[in-house]
Design a protein around this nucleic acid. Structure first.
Lengths: 216, 216
DNA sequence: GCATGTGAAAAGGTTCACAGCC
DNA sequence: GGCTGTGAACCTTTTCACATGC
């Protein structure tokens, strides 16, 4: 049987790696592999085997000593730990370049994510059909969120309206936001924001390139 | 004059926040603000003022006690620290949904980034014009990288070819990769990979949603 | 025998609180 | 007086190394 530490909080750094483990496990399963080890799984996930074992220890005890892990069942445990056995309905706000790409992104792979609505503010975009959805006006945000039971919002708007949209999203009761706008959103403590900043990532790479050049 | 700690390494966590500071400084400059404080800048960047001051201390000493920071000059110092005063030429590999969006992304904001080439493997895409570039075949990767003096590659290919493309990118001498494919790329130690994983970010949000639900 | 699971040690990062300086 | 810059304290995260149990 599997133990499940009831209240011990899972460290944030561990949570951030669980998707990697899950992905690696699904790859293994797709290849027909049924059993794996912490070292194999760690290598495929890009972490050390000690790190992987420590991370899993926060969730419970899923392996067999001397043997390893059952691929399918470990994948199931992580799926449950991530809350992916329940459906999460998304709304994407801001149907520009990026919003388009996100709407068409087939890989809401981890089952459990469903795009429920697309919204934008531009009259030229509202009413058009994108990825099987009619784009609605962002002024109807609260109504759409309620109507479609949206629990997560993806923000792909220009930076100068992102905070305003975020305020409305939070006001409509959404507590999880994935932000692509390059600014730090101000939200209440109980709202979780994850930010993806392509420009920032490039700048970090530039730092390393400069450091390399300086070291010559 | 400004001191610049010569060899003391800048912590990775600090480097990852520098883009936020730079963005906030540019916002302030755009608003006509010429002087700011660690608390104002920190709030706009989403960090604590102590953290901001500590981060800056790794780069040098740029403020005036009792006064604050000059917006323009601090922005300049961070720009230099990030290596953004030199031009970085990018190639985007994989011109699907996401690659399209990235190619059209106007905000290679931080001057210094320039899209030099687009590549794909599909005969239907190669030869078409996207964002002002004719898409070239990924088999010509090494030649394109050399011809266009590409120093960073953005990988937006399907996951199952990402490692193969990454190997060729590294073989062609590129040492900085921004990876959008959902897998852990295996690269030599001297290559820097930053990964952006939209599905993973959603899964992390799902974890928090589940934790919230469990706490009720 | 062998790979997991885990305390303990080490490293890394953040916060505190105040000295230093304008 | 007020804000920066920074050592010291604190907390989190990673790594180590080995006891545990199949």
């Amino acid at each position: 049987m599997v133990s499940e530490p009831s209240d011990a909080a899972v460290p944030g750094a561990t949570v951030a790696r669980l998707p990697y483990y899950l992905r690696a496990l699904r790859d293994l399963a797709a290849q027909g592999v049924t059993t794996t080890s912490s070292s194999e799984l760690a290598e495929r996930s890009g972490v050390s085997s000690a790190q992987l074992r420590k991370d899993l220890s926060y969730l419970g005890s899923f392996g067999t000593r001397g043997v390893g892990y059952d691929v399918e069942s470990l994948a199931s445990y992580i799926t449950v730990a991530l809350g992916l056995e329940t459906e999460h309905r998304l709304a994407i706000v801001g149907i520009g370049n990026l919003g388009h790409a996100l709407a068409n992104y087939s890989g809401y792979e981890a089952r459990g994510f469903q795009v429920a609505a697309l919204l934008d503010a531009s009259p030229e975009v509202v009413g058009t059909r994108v990825a099987g959805h009619v784009v609605e006006h962002v002024d109807d945000l609260a109504a759409v969120i309620s109507r479609d039971d949206v629990s997560m919002v993806v923000l792909a708007t220009p930076a100068h309206v992102a905070q305003d949209v975020a305020d409305r999203v939070v006001g409509a009761g959404v507590r999880e936001i994935l932000n692509f706008a390059p600014l730090a959103l101000q939200v209440p403590d109980d709202v979780v924001v994850r930010s993806v900043d392509v420009g920032g990532e490039l700048q970090i790479l530039a730092f390393h390139a400069a450091a390399r050049a300086a070291a010559l």
